[in-house]
């Protein structure tokens, strides 16, 4: 991606985010992105020493874990109740074209 974002960049990012968008939508997003990105990227101009650690979460705790104990699962009906397509207790998706033999 170049310093000035273009339509190809937006298309690539949309693809990476699994969003299929029309050219019109992509163009609209590009306009907004160009407007925002300068403000959003302001940190890249901050001069920060290498020693400063990164904060990626805020919990003070460490080693938060659970014992290896089996708990009740959802029953199958509940697990599937919000699915658009289901079949014999499975979720259903369109066949994924994967193999070319």
């Amino acid at each position: 991606m170049s310093s000035q974002m273009d339509l190809n960049d937006v298309e690539y990012l949309a693809q990476l985010s699994k969003l299929s968008l029309s050219q019109k939508q992509l163009k609209k997003i590009l306009v907004d992105l160009r407007a925002i990105i300068g403000h959003m990227s302001k940190v890249s101009k901050m001069k920060l020493s290498k020693k400063i650690p990164r904060t990626n979460r805020l919990g003070n705790e460490q080693n938060v874990w659970r014992e290896d104990v089996v708990e009740t699962s959802l029953n199958q009906e509940v697990a599937l109740k919000n699915a658009k397509r289901k079949y014999n207790g499975y979720f259903v998706v369109k066949q994924l074209v994967r193999k070319t033999k």
């Binding site: 959003m40 990227s41 940190v43 890249s44 901050m46 920060l48 400063i52 650690p53 990164r54 904060t55 990626n56």
Partner: peptide
């Protein structure tokens, strides 16, 4: 330069 830098700035 974006996400990781922001995490550092967060520390600051």
């Amino acid at each position: 330069k974006l996400y990781k830098k922001a995490q550092k700035a967060r520390t600051v």
